[in-house]
Nucleic acid binder design. Structure first.
Lengths: 216, 216, 216, 216
DNA sequence: AACTAACCGAGACGGTACGTCTCGTCTTCGC
DNA sequence: GCGAAGACGAGACGTACCGTCTCGGTTAGTT
């Protein structure tokens, strides 16, 4: 966290500080992210304005504008902080078990629906803002893609998945189904749904013939 | 179209109509939808304000507020009008051909990316507005789901798809992959992608064993 | 009343009626004036809008615009109707008694302060609208000036007032004092005030030397 | 001027002032008053809207609403600023000369009729707004009343006016005649009118018998 | 009795201004 | 020089009325 490197939406953390200058206030930084996280859980994305974040954080507006480019940048960092902790890489020795683990975990996150408005809001802004779009992919999507890809690759190397399969398309279909169900259909992501996805993946890409699922 | 019935985001088209009252102006109605469509193609969702729509349409603001509840309602109707015409039901006598037809058509619409910001904006607002969410599903998703379901069911009845398959999950995965790629990854929806989806669906749900890809 | 002639603020009462035409609705006319009078007693001049008058009178807006040029014209007619009845010409055989009668009567009207906002509002508009200014003078001031002039002239012809006096200035000072006190100072128009005016007029223009007030 | 203390129509000039706050902008304050003064000279009172003042002053609307309660409050301060400079206290050693001086001066102000619509507009609003009424009296009437009262009192102490006279009524009649002529009759305030008022005052309250004012 | 024009109620229309809200910037202090 | 406070120019919000315009429906007079 803490501007953790080189996100273009942050403005960096005052490198090469001049003599006499106070450095970026850790207290203010955290207060702002916490305030943003609280507010996005209380009201619609469009009502989480910079002024409200500043007031909640007990901070001047300028302190926010000094370090972030927009409210989207603040919320992006706040969301990324939430997501970051939540993508463990399961390792149960079996592709199906790992995939189930992964899906359960990620569905639990979506079902905790508090973050949906934030994510949809960021998604919407990202359509018109290339920088934000890039940050969205890097900070909210990539970690999960990396984890899922690792699981899939382990499945291939263990011989549980057929080797010729296009992992990208499988990943798009798995993740896509989750996002589509949550944001678009607003349908629940329950156990049955998870099992159906697993079944579909195994039928399409598993090394066992699909016949066992439908004995013909 | 034209308030086509009972959308709660519209306010109805001249309800009851007292004696002598002037009825809703068709000219204004169309000008507003056209202006909204134009503007959403020109700038970010958040910058398409009611005042701009009214100005562009040569209409008083009140005329918009008289018939719609919010800018989202206007844009929803404008988007629905665009989508409405574009979902033909292909019938080529073969599941794969029909599915390819359908995917090519829908991908072409997405690639004609003009409507993406609008749709993402509506999607974001729908997270916090149940009425809007319902309208989003009914007017932007359902037509396509119906078409795809028909294609899938024909595949089953023709014996091209296994009968036990959960069509809903397949639909979520197909549509999900499209939306995910477009809005989230901003990756192109090209021919290769379409073929990969078809291959994956056939492998998972087709009656022919996937053996050709994995000769076993 | 009833457009009583040729006020340019009214638009006349359907002259030279064509065959089959319905003439001006007496019911609507009266309802409008009554509604205007009621409203001006209930709220500030600026809040007495045409729409409110129409709604109160149970009348379409167009019916008002058909017969009057503006809300000021409506209120002018309503005020004139109130004022018209209230300027009797006293005749007690003595200038002082007549003047006292007149002043008491007119002060009672002003003290019934309900009409002050209306009159001040019309006065304000009259500053920028010559037609309205003329109507204001003709319909709200002239009747009283005529009565007061008659009283003064009778005083002169009876030998109670000195003949050389400029009656216009006396009239301006008397009426001016009333208006100034009411609209500007918002001070009461009580008996003492009336007597002081009478004393001042008699001292300045009476044929008896003012010595009685200051025996010197 | 400049919010000179405690006018309730103003909202005070940066009350208390927390640490670090920016204080009221002198530039904006003056620009607003100037814009209001210009506009009221260009168009009817009712057309001098806040938006026009803000636009003319190159100022946000909120900056006006932050410091004044209404357009009337702005115009009141603008008018008061105009009036303030223009009430010198004459001192020619003689009551008649002083009174003539005073009347000439005040009539010149009224004849410069640019301010009439503003003053009548404020007067009208003051009928329904106690705060505004009070401000009107304090800031537009009182200075003049004070000057005139001083002139009258000097007349009494010099023996030019009879001591028993009620100065308030004389003041009401003098000022009343001016306002009545200007706003109501829209008659000119010329030299003859001034002389007639003086004659009438001297006849009614002077220590010389009135006879000498006419022939002699 | 049928015709017919103007009046009537209702209210939608293109507009202007309202007073409020939030934006992102700028200014001033105190630490 | 950072951080708080908050004034500033800007402009969209949703509402209230403006004055104009169309609607049917009603109401007198001719014909």
């Amino acid at each position: 966290m803490e501007g953790d490197g080189n996100n273009p939406l942050d403005k960096g953390s005052a490198p090469a500080v001049s003599p006499g200058a106070t450095r970026r206030s850790k207290r203010a930084h955290e207060a702002i992210l916490n305030a943003a996280a609280e507010l996005i859980h209380e009201r619609p994305y469009s009502d989480v304005c910079i002024e409200a974040i500043a007031a909640r954080a007990g901070v001047g507006k300028q302190t926010i504008y000094r370090w972030w480019t927009s409210k989207a940048a603040v919320l992006m960092e706040a969301c990324a902080a939430m997501v970051a902790r939540e993508v463990p890489l399961p390792d149960n020795g079996s592709f199906v078990l790992d995939l189930r683990d992964y899906l359960q975990h990620i569905c639990a996150f979506f079902e905790n629906q508090l973050s949906r408005p934030a994510i949809a809001g960021l998604l919407a802004e990202a359509q018109c803002n290339a920088e934000l779009a890039r940050a969205f992919q890097d900070r909210l999507l990539m970690q999960r893609r990396t984890v899922l890809r690792t699981i899939l690759e382990r499945g291939v190397s263990r011989g549980e998945l057929r080797p010729g399969v296009d992992l990208d398309v499988i990943m798009d279909m798995i993740h896509g189904a989750l996002w589509y169900r949550t944001l678009l259909l607003k349908a629940p992501l329950d156990e049955a749904f998870i099992e159906n996805i697993i079944a579909q993946v195994m039928a399409g890409s598993g090394t066992r013939p699909p016949g066992n699922a439908a004995p013909d």
